[in-house]
């Protein structure tokens, strides 16, 4: 108990000192700036955008796009990855193409998708899904390849059809890895969503922070920044907790 207390005050010291020093510096210099704001002003700006609803609307937009993109990208990617993991021929023939397409930076697709779909949620969802597609393919493929070979032999002996083999043997065996893949993807989806919004899409949190900057409201800009950081942190916290809940069951069932 005491050690927990000790680590937590040590962890909290640096942020608290930074905030206090920033506030003292801002008060002492009577800060008037287009790029800096004092912590108290930032908190005030945060509550201002929170109460007028713009922050929550932007958050809902961003999270919705990130969520849809995540489901689409991880779903399609995992499906392709599973097929590639099961069929050697498909994997060998697509490997080179995938390796060539994978390094294309996802932001390079912004202009293409923008041209095809215009601005809005759809364009953002498609970009997020495309960005998550490759890592999901690679992770699912690796997971299927690592399925205990004896399980595959069992499925051969039982003469299971393809769908039975998929639902009874392969999918249960790779659920933990799929969850890992989803966890990585969720964090990445938020990053891509905010990037797309800052770069092009007049929509969501990224656009909010960009507008605050262009309107020379630094307090609002930092409030958005901290909020985006908090959401990223919350998502990773939630997924870690979910993993601890879901995965021990699988870990026990996995004891070979």
């Amino acid at each position: 108990m005491r050690s927990v207390l000790k680590t937590s005050w040590r962890a909290a010291l640096l942020p608290v000192v930074v905030i206090v020093v920033a506030q003292i510096a801002a008060t002492a210099t009577q800060l008037e700036s287009d790029s800096l704001a004092s912590p108290i002003d930032i908190v005030a700006a945060f509550f201002a955008v929170l109460t007028d609803g713009s922050l929550l609307r932007a958050t809902a937009d961003t999270l919705m796009a990130a969520f849809c993109g995540c489901v689409l990208g991880v779903g399609a990617g995992s499906l392709i990855g599973i097929v590639l993991g099961l069929f050697r021929l498909a994997d060998d023939s697509l490997d080179l193409t995938i390796e060539l397409l994978r390094p294309v930076p996802v932001v390079a697709l912004i202009p293409v998708v923008m041209m095809l779909l215009g601005f809005g949620a759809r364009m953002e969802i498609v970009i997020i899904a495309l960005g998550l597609l490759w890592p999901s393919i690679v992770l699912a493929r690796a997971a299927v390849r690592e399925v205990e070979p004896r399980l595959m032999e069992v499925s051969a002996v039982l003469m299971l059809g393809f769908s039975a083999r998929l639902t009874k043997i392969v999918l249960p065996a790779i659920v933990p890895q799929l969850f890992m893949s989803l966890k990585l993807a969720a964090g990445y989806a938020l990053v891509v969503a905010v990037t797309v919004e800052i770069t092009a899409n007049p929509f969501g949190l990224g656009y909010g922070i960009m507008m605050a900057q262009q309107a020379l409201r630094p307090a609002e800009m930092f409030a958005y920044l901290l909020w985006i950081g908090a959401i990223g942190w919350l998502i990773s916290l939630l997924l870690n907790a979910a993993q601890r809940r879901v995965l021990p069951a699988f870990a026990k069932g996995d004891a070979r």
């Binding site: 680590t7 040590r10 962890a11 909290a12 010291l13 640096l14 942020p15 287009d34 790029s35 964090g187 938020l190 990053v191 905010v194 990037t195 800052i198 770069t199 990224g206 922070i209 960009m210 605050a212 900057q213 630094p218 800009m221 930092f222 958005y224 920044l225 985006i228 950081g229 990223g232 942190w233 998502i235 990773s236």
Partner: peptide
């Protein structure tokens, strides 16, 4: 490590692109 690492971990999930407006402001 005990003093600084937790703050860094806290900042890690922040999308790097969210710093762009801040950098533009400066």
């Amino acid at each position: 490590r005990a003093f600084i690492a937790p703050t860094l971990e806290l900042l890690r999930p922040l999308p790097a692109s969210a710093m762009i407006p801040i950098a533009i402001a400066f």
